[in-house]
Measured scan of single mutants.
Amino acid sequence: RGFLEKAAVKKMAKAIMADPNKADEVYKKWADKGYTLTQMSNFLKSKTAGKYDRVYNGYVIHLD
């Protein structure tokens, strides 16, 4: 289950990176699912340092 969630989160993160207008909708879905910042950090780990920082930081702001 965790692997599928991670894959889904990364897919949506890539969608945000391609079209930032989708961010609020995606952040709301993640918040509704109760994803914590720790979970998001783990889901968005990448071999490329900083690749998903913008998405993660946007989610931090959304939760605030």
Rank of each mutant, 00 (worst) to 15 (best):
R1D: 11
R1H: 10
R1E: 12
G2N: 11
G2W: 11
G2M: 12
G2L: 13
G2Y: 12
F3C: 15
F3G: 13
L4E: 13
L4M: 12
L4P: 10
L4Q: 13
L4R: 15
L4Y: 12
E5W: 05
E5T: 08
E5R: 06
E5D: 09
E5C: 11
K6T: 11
K6I: 13
K6L: 08
K6A: 14
A7H: 13
A7N: 11
A7S: 10
A8R: 13
V9I: 10
V9Q: 01
V9F: 03
K10Q: 13
K11E: 11
K11D: 08
K11S: 09
M12N: 06
M12Y: 05
M12S: 05
A13K: 02
A13N: 01
A15Y: 06
A15L: 12
A15M: 12
A15V: 11
A15T: 10
I16G: 01
I16P: 01
I16W: 00
I16V: 11
M17T: 03
M17S: 03
M17A: 04
M17K: 04
A18Y: 08
A18F: 08
A18K: 12
D19V: 04
D19Y: 07
D19P: 01
D19T: 05
P20F: 07
P20D: 05
P20H: 09
N21H: 10
N21T: 14
K22G: 06
K22P: 01
A23N: 02
A23K: 07
A23W: 02
A23P: 01
A23V: 03
D24R: 09
D24K: 10
D24V: 09
E25D: 11
E25Q: 09
E25N: 07
V26P: 00
V26Q: 05
V26H: 03
V26S: 03
V26Y: 08
V26I: 14
Y27T: 00
Y27I: 02
Y27F: 07
Y27D: 00
Y27E: 01
Y27N: 01
K28G: 08
K28S: 10
K28H: 11
K28Q: 12
K28D: 06
K28L: 06
K29V: 15
K29P: 00
K29S: 13
W30G: 00
W30Y: 02
A31V: 08
A31T: 05
A31D: 05
A31P: 00
D32P: 00
D32R: 08
D32H: 09
K33N: 10
K33C: 15
K33P: 01
K33T: 10
K33H: 10
G34R: 05
G34I: 02
G34T: 03
G34S: 04
G34W: 03
G34C: 08
Y35L: 06
Y35V: 04
Y35F: 06
T36C: 06
T36F: 03
T36V: 02
T36H: 03
T36Q: 03
T36S: 09
T36Y: 03
T36N: 09
T36G: 05
L37P: 10
L37N: 04
T38M: 11
T38Y: 09
T38Q: 14
T38L: 12
T38C: 15
Q39Y: 03
Q39G: 03
Q39K: 05
Q39C: 08
Q39R: 05
Q39E: 14
Q39N: 05
M40S: 00
S41V: 09
S41C: 14
S41R: 14
S41F: 11
N42Q: 13
N42M: 10
N42G: 11
N42I: 12
N42L: 10
N42V: 11
F43A: 06
F43T: 03
F43R: 02
F43G: 02
L44D: 02
K45V: 08
K45Q: 12
K45W: 08
K45E: 13
K45R: 09
S46Y: 08
S46R: 05
S46D: 14
K47R: 09
K47A: 10
K47W: 06
T48D: 11
A49D: 13
A49W: 07
G50D: 07
G50R: 06
G50N: 09
K51G: 05
K51T: 06
K51I: 09
K51Q: 10
K51M: 10
Y52M: 04
Y52D: 00
Y52A: 02
Y52F: 08
D53P: 01
D53T: 06
D53V: 05
R54Y: 12
R54N: 15
R54K: 14
R54H: 13
V55G: 00
Y56M: 10
Y56E: 02
Y56F: 14
Y56C: 05
N57W: 15
N57C: 15
N57P: 02
N57F: 14
N57D: 15
N57V: 09
G58L: 03
G58H: 03
G58Y: 03
Y59L: 02
Y59N: 01
Y59M: 02
Y59P: 01
Y59K: 01
Y59T: 01
Y59V: 01
Y59F: 05
Y59C: 02
V60F: 06
V60M: 12
V60P: 01
V60R: 11
I61V: 13
I61L: 13
I61W: 08
I61Q: 14
H62S: 05
H62C: 05
H62V: 05
H62T: 03
L63Q: 04
L63W: 05
L63Y: 03
L63I: 07
L63R: 03
L63S: 02
D64H: 12
D64Y: 11
D64I: 15
D64M: 15
D64E: 15
D64R: 15
D64P: 03
